[in-house]
């Protein structure tokens, strides 16, 4: 009998689960040592029994629980509480689970407004918002650790399969996983020349300047080229096993999908500071709040009405 793993997805996109599959061939070897007892994307284990007549939502006991997605409705809560109850170790997988992720952008309006307006688009027939059988929304999107105790956070949108494998192996071997603690910039090979005489950041409307035939370390840092790049304030991880941060490899600036590098950091404020300390006018950033696009849970993104008077 291997280590028992239960996996669940909450307010998620299934990308975290695909990242688990993207471990690829090493996953086949891992399957010798682990037993998935519950994982809806792959295994037909049902909450209410295989005949659908149970009264309570049940997930089997497991040594390790993995949860992707934030928490945005009653069903997510119920599933999450059951996971916490049944799993000895609980891992929050992906930036939705660790920091709210992209869906937490709705926290600028609240879940209710997001749902109400979805049923008012021009192609939608006039209607009432669905309310029978479907789970009731919470007021906003929460990160998993706002609702239950989490033992290990593995962010990334998507998370890096190499790091997921590292965490599982570390658990199997009873050691601490080696997870990078630095920033994306610390893993980025681009050429930095110090202050680049940039006073404003540009929107990404023109491609970066580089020679496509030349190695990536000959390209100048995108921030020094005047493009908004969130590498300085974002947790490293996407480059692990790949050598180059994923977006930078495509010559595209970082948008912060691994969440803040500082524990409990605020990617928006941290980025403003990073810009200011490089002499760059932070007001040149269009839609500053979108710098929190991956980490809007933990009360960082709030409805306009609630944040009046704060600024």
């Amino acid at each position: 009998m291997g280590v028992r793993i239960a996996e669940e997805w909450l307010h998620s996109c299934s990308g975290c689960e695909i990242s688990i599959l993207n471990i690829g061939e090493p996953l086949i070897e891992l399957l010798e040592k682990i037993d998935f007892v519950h994982i809806p994307v792959l295994i037909d284990n049902k909450y209410y029994g295989q005949l659908g007549d149970g009264k309570e939502l049940r997930i089997p006991e497991a040594d390790v629980g993995i949860v992707s997605g934030g928490v945005a409705n009653q069903e997510h809560l119920e599933v999450l509480f059951e996971m916490r109850k049944k799993c000895k170790v609980l891992i929050a997988l992906g930036t939705c689970a660790t920091h709210g992720g992209l869906p937490a952008l709705i926290n600028e309006w609240g879940m209710k407004k997001g749902i109400d307006d979805y049923y008012k688009t021009p192609t939608t027939e006039p209607c009432e918002v669905p309310s029978e059988v479907v789970p009731k929304p919470l007021d906003r999107v929460y990160a998993v650790d706002e609702k239950v105790k989490v033992d290990l956070m593995l962010p990334g949108c998507p998370p890096n399969p190499a790091l997921i494998a590292e965490v599982v192996n570390a658990l199997l071997e009873g050691r601490d996983p080696a997870i990078p603690g630095k920033s994306v910039c610390d893993t980025c090979p681009t050429r930095r020349e110090g202050k680049g005489g940039v006073s404003r950041v540009r929107r990404f409307l023109q491609n970066a300047q580089y020679d496509p035939e030349a190695p990536i370390d000959e390209m100048r840092c995108l921030l020094e080229q005047g493009l908004m790049c969130m590498g300085p304030v974002t947790a490293a991880g996407c480059a692990a096993g790949r050598g180059v941060p994923s977006c930078i490899r495509a010559r595209v600036p970082c948008r912060g999908c691994f969440g803040p590098v500082r524990k409990k950091g605020n990617q928006m404020l941290d980025m403003m500071n990073a810009l200011a300390s490089n002499g760059i006018d932070w007001k040149s950033v269009v839609d500053r709040r979108s710098l929190l696009r991956f980490s809007g849970a933990h009360g960082l993104l709030k409805p306009l009405s609630a944040r009046k008077g704060e600024e």
């Binding site: 307010h11 998620s12 996109c13 299934s14 990308g15 975290c16 689960e17 695909i18 945005a72 409705n73 069903e75 992720g101 992209l102 869906p103 952008l105 709705i106 600028e108 309006w109 879940m111 407004k113 997001g114 749902i115 307006d117 979805y118 688009t121 789970p135 929304p137 949108c157 998507p158 929107r203 990404f204 409307l205 948008r255 269009v286 839609d287 709040r289 979108s290 696009r293």
Partner: peptide, 26 residues
Amino acid sequence: SLRGFEKFIEGRAAEEVPRIVNRICG
């Protein structure tokens, strides 16, 4: 479940949206 992407891309710089809405589906 319902996430409401239509709503929360409001106000975003349009060129950023293709790297936001990709999270509708993994």
